[in-house]
Computed example of a mutant assay.
Amino acid sequence: MKAEKLPIVRFAPRGADSFYEAVTEKVSAYFEKNQLSPYANTTMWIKTYFMLLLYVVPYVLMVTGQAAGNYWLYFALWFLMGWGMVGIGTAVMHDANHGTYSPNKKVNSLIGHILEIVGGYSATWKIQHNLLHHTYTNIEGLDDDISSIKLLRFSPRQPWYWFHRYQYLFAWFFYTNMTLFWMTAKDYLQIIRYKKHDLLANQKVSFGQAIFRITMYKLFYYGYILVLPILFSGMPWYLVLAGFLLMHFTAGLFLSCVFQPSHIMETSAFAAPVKSEGKMHMEDSWAIHELGNTTNFAPKSRVLSWFIGGLNFQIEHHLFTGICHVHYPKIAPIVKSTALAFGLPYHEQETFMKALLLHAKMLKLLGKE
Rank of each mutant, 00 (worst) to 15 (best):
H359F: 11
G252Q: 01
G112H: 00
K186H: 13
V240L: 00
D284Q: 15
H263W: 09
T294I: 05
W78M: 10
G141R: 01
I46L: 14
R153Q: 11
K5S: 07
S37F: 06
Q158S: 14
V258M: 04
S301E: 12
N293L: 09
L151K: 13
A22H: 14
H129R: 06
A298V: 08
A271V: 01
W72Y: 07
L6M: 12
P159A: 15
I308K: 05
Y188F: 15
L311H: 11
A242S: 07
P38G: 06
R10L: 11
A3V: 15
A355N: 05
S147K: 14
T321R: 14
T137Q: 01
E266W: 11
T64N: 09
H129C: 00
P159L: 15
L189D: 09
L366K: 07
A271P: 03
P273H: 12
V118W: 03
L255M: 12
L358A: 11
E316K: 02
Y30I: 10
Q349R: 14
R213I: 03
A271W: 03
P103C: 07
E348W: 07
V118A: 01
G223M: 02
L357G: 05
A201P: 00
T250P: 03
N97M: 10
L53V: 04
G243M: 04
P333A: 08
D143S: 02
A68S: 12
Y168Q: 09
K354T: 15
W160M: 09
Y71C: 00
I308Q: 02
F19T: 12
A29M: 09
G89W: 01
H359R: 06
Y222C: 02
N138M: 06
V227D: 01
L73D: 04
F207T: 04
I288F: 07
Q203N: 07
M178Y: 12
E116M: 04
E4I: 13
F320S: 01
H327M: 00
L340Y: 05
T64I: 05
L241D: 01
K279S: 10
H317D: 10
L36M: 12
N312L: 10
T215M: 08
P159H: 14
F19M: 14
L73A: 13
A360N: 07
L358F: 12
E25W: 05
T90R: 00
H133K: 07
N296G: 11
T338K: 10
W45S: 08
A242V: 02
F11Q: 07
K150E: 11
W162P: 00
E369C: 08
W286P: 04
K33L: 09
S337C: 03
P299I: 07
N108A: 02
T48E: 02
K218V: 00
E140V: 09
V326E: 15
E348G: 02
F75S: 05
Y59W: 11
S301D: 15
A298S: 14
M81V: 02
A360H: 09
I139P: 01
H248F: 09
F244E: 04
S37I: 06
T43A: 07
E21F: 04
K126A: 01
D95V: 07
Y136S: 00
L340P: 00
A29T: 11
L239S: 02
W306N: 10
Y39G: 08
E32T: 13
Y136V: 03
N70A: 13
K150S: 08
K5Y: 04
Y71A: 14
G278W: 10
H134I: 05
L358S: 08
I315T: 11
P236K: 04
G309H: 04
